[in-house]
Design a protein around this nucleic acid. Sequence first.
DNA 1: GAAAAAGGCAACCATTTAGCTGCCTAATTT
DNA 2: AAATTAGGCAGCTAAATGGTTGCCTTTTTC
Lengths: 112, 112
Amino acid sequence: MLNPSLRDPAPIFAALGDRTRLALLDKLGDGQARSIAALSSDTALTRQAITKHLHVLQDAGLVASLRVGRESRFAARREALDEARAYLDGVSRQWDDTLGRLKAFVEDGPTG
Amino acid sequence: MLNPSLRDPAPIFAALGDRTRLALLDKLGDGQARSIAALSSDTALTRQAITKHLHVLQDAGLVASLRVGRESRFAARREALDEARAYLDGVSRQWDDTLGRLKAFVEDGPTG
DNA sequence: GAAAAAGGCAACCATTTAGCTGCCTAATTT
DNA sequence: AAATTAGGCAGCTAAATGGTTGCCTTTTTC
């Protein structure tokens, strides 16, 4: 098995697998915590749709939220992102060792 | 906007967002091309389920297939993986610059 | 040439997902 | 205290997802 890491990275990738959510992470990328209203303005989607996406990101650990007065502020979290990166780096490292055979697949047809 | 890369990385992440598919990529990680039958053995799932997953991976560019005689051989592809890695690295680099503010969010509450 | 192995195709089902609307509560603002 | 703003909660719908079974074609093998 490749990555014997403790958590299953699939939910993190699943959370990243949506344009709207990637855009939200992009907005939060400056480190500012933002309210749902702030994150919903300048989108075509409704506040509730954005709220759902934020919860998906939060369940995956990619953002954290904090209630402040009447608003809920969301901010990006490094940890889950780093898990995803570490996983992909592990896969990439494994594939590095076998590039020759992959090349052979393309040029000469599969050998396995 | 963060990554002005040509393709939308969301479909790649979506393809990675499933345990079964990550396991398939893991199996293909040694560079050997494998038939659907080979990839379906030792799974609890049916051949057809595995076939569907392989097509999801193929649509995302993470694997390539080649018909050889009566079998379809699948092999891992670097390109899509590298796109995903490059995207996450870009996000990570952006977040690096703002770690101080993220820290402040955790310790002192959000400031935005 | 018959049997077995590999796999494509289609239909079906249950669950999840992505979005909406409507309504209610809780803070702020005026 | 009334109006506004932020957002939670519930219910609904359409489409996508993950899985199944059944059947057919093609290629090997015996």
